[in-house]
Amino acid sequence: MKTAVVVFPGSNCDRDIYHVCRHVMRWSTEFVWHKETTLPAGTDLVILPGGFSYGDYLRSGAIARFSAIMSAVKSHADRGGAVIGVCNGFQILTESGLLPGALCRNRDLKFICAPVGLRVENAGSIVTRAYRAGERIRMPIAHADGCYQAGEETLKRLEGEGRVLFRYVDEAGEPSERGNPNGSLHNIAGVLNDRGNVAGLMPHPERCAETILGSTDGRRFFESLVK
């Protein structure tokens, strides 16, 4: 799996996810500066990492979307190549139209850094096929703009086509209001595009992919990509 981790000014989870790809998964992994206009030859997977690209000015992800590299990322996605966005990367993917919906300020207006309960909704996607459908896992979140919003039609399509990947759940494993940290519609924590090759999520699988970090629930996110 040849992986490209895009680095924007303000990315701050790029090294974490590089570490997981390179040293945990043992994939050939390279950083790609946002001013590049092409991806390294033979790139299979593009990762847009978490952080605060361009200081979250205007809207989270709104400026990064116009970075030079994003044309190459779009072409890669159009060719069917895998693209994943974590946290700020998810925000960039929605802003650029590669994923539906938008991510708004959290319901309680706070930056939340905490582990949350998730339920795997679709265990057949490029990033979830190493999980079991309905499985309850935990992953950390760290964001202020993670409230997933989308029009009714879009939500209906996402739900109907099984494109909700993860949902926030409470201790009982239910997608309740109490289990919803940020006010996301339908407790949505991650979604898939209609073609199935672009995925985005607010939780951070790279922060829970090794035993030393207290949880390996995120490891299968990466293992799914090569399953």
């Binding site: 708004c104 300020r105 959290n106 319901r107 309680d108 207006l109 409230c147 919003q149 006010g183």
Partner: peptide, 14 residues
């Protein structure tokens, strides 16, 4: 401005 129906927690706080 946020569309009607989109959660506006800042507006609520104000």
């Amino acid at each position: 401005t946020l569309k009607n129906g989109v959660l506006d927690p800042q507006g609520k706080a104000v």
